[in-house]
Design a protein around this nucleic acid. Sequence first.
RNA 1: CGGGCUGUGGCGCAGUUGGUAGCGCGCAUCGUUCGGGACGAUGAGGUCGGCGGUUCAAGUCCGCCCAGCCCGACCA
Length: 480
Amino acid sequence: MSQSSEQSITKRKDDFSKWYQDVIDGAQLAEHGSAKGTMVIRPYGYAIWENMQKVLDAMFKETGVQNAYFPLFIPESFLKKEADHVEGFAPEVAVVTHAGGKKLEEPLIVRPTSETIINDSYSRWIQSYRDLPLLINQWANIVRWEMRPRLFLRTTEFLWQEGHTVHATKEDAEDRVQMMLDVYKKFVEEYLAMPVIAGRKSDTEKFAGADFTTCIEAMMQDKKALQAGTSHMLGQNFAKVFDVKFLNEDGEQEYGWQTSWGVSTRMIGGLIMTHSDDNGLVVPPKIAPTHAVIIPIFSDEKEKKQVMPVAEDLAEKLKLEDLKIILDDRDMRPGPRFFEWEKKGVPIRIEIGPKDIKNNSVVAVRRDTGEKENIKQDECAKKIPNILDDIQKNLFEKASKFLKDNTHEVSYWDEFKKIMQNNGGFISAYWCGNAKCEQEIKDETKATIRCIPFCQDNGSGKCVHCDKTGKQKVIFAKAY
RNA sequence: CGGGCUGUGGCGCAGUUGGUAGCGCGCAUCGUUCGGGACGAUGAGGUCGGCGGUUCAAGUCCGCCCAGCCCGACCA
């Protein structure tokens, strides 16, 4: 008995070490050293990404955004035009120097982001205030050669969307920055069930080339912060160097006011690190590639003939409710089938066996709580969607409670250090606004300013580190 | 690039004082099974990260190189 349970633990451990591989393979190019940090997104992980794309794309379009596509290769000189931008990105760009068997006249960089090449187009597209606002989004892959890649969260190549807009006034652009951050917050909270704190980045953390950067920050289960999306106010910085000008209503030339905003496949990592448990992924219903898996159970042909028609019938009925259903009738024992879908985080498992046939019922098991419920077959079409809604709600509430429980209001530096050394989490505290102070905090505790939340109580207090008066509370945390 | 650890079937690992490679999982076939990772039998799968050295003999000892992981600097 003890032997078999020991063996069972061993088996689970083996699988645990690779449960995430249903989603992404990392380091499979390990023998090719220069390709380290690249990733392969498996079909299951890609299905999650496709769902994210679909929802976000619809939300973008509601705000008037259109999709377009721009080149992967960018002339090196484009990147160099904006001083802060080149300083921020030059260390991490991959450069193509040879192609077609020849040395290139001008090296091409693989885009780390597309502000420069898109503005090159915009400078030709925009003539008049009537051409504005120009609201464009691109779904693309980009490359950033970071020193230390990290599976899921900081891969060398990643997929993302980047929106690039041009407006006639500063106010319009700033409204757009906020509008898109609101879209991200809504998407991440309502679909991914990840609570986030929205705010502005400090100057040291802002995007290279932006006037200011806004962001949403989420808390992972290890209490570290993950930036889940950013929306930047670019001002006229890129417009000036790429000559994006328009004739305004008064017949005067003006530079356009711009924004850019993006979220990436990093969100898949965030999703996993927010909700998953020791048994594998937990995927919120609103983003899950499969809502429910039906597992027919039978031990011989006779039982199979009884069970299968009911299982098939139920699958059809649930599909009519707009649910994505998998009927897993593979020739495997039930246990391994249960476990496989559990690892993949399918929100509901429906078991149908001979016992259920007798009772006209099924057994529904929730992935988030493990609760089992007997449901009459003819009530499934009504009840399963309700359970899915409840799972979605429960995941968000659970994560919200975790975020709340691990966010600490701190006034004193000793307390700050103690929290960062021990439990970690988010610290909400007053900050003087000085970059030097920010750096010292980072050096001492590894915690950085994740954001300056929009929600402020208009008070003021002593900076948690230097005691000077600060007007705003900021969120400190160790970050990915 | 600094500091630590590690490279052995698909995955996880063992390999004593050097003697020519093994275990678990997974995979395949057959049988018994089947409501939470079943069991038995049989079988497939490895130039032990690379190069060089010591030796009659190297997964094991020595040197160099390469790669990966963790910790720092960089970052979505």
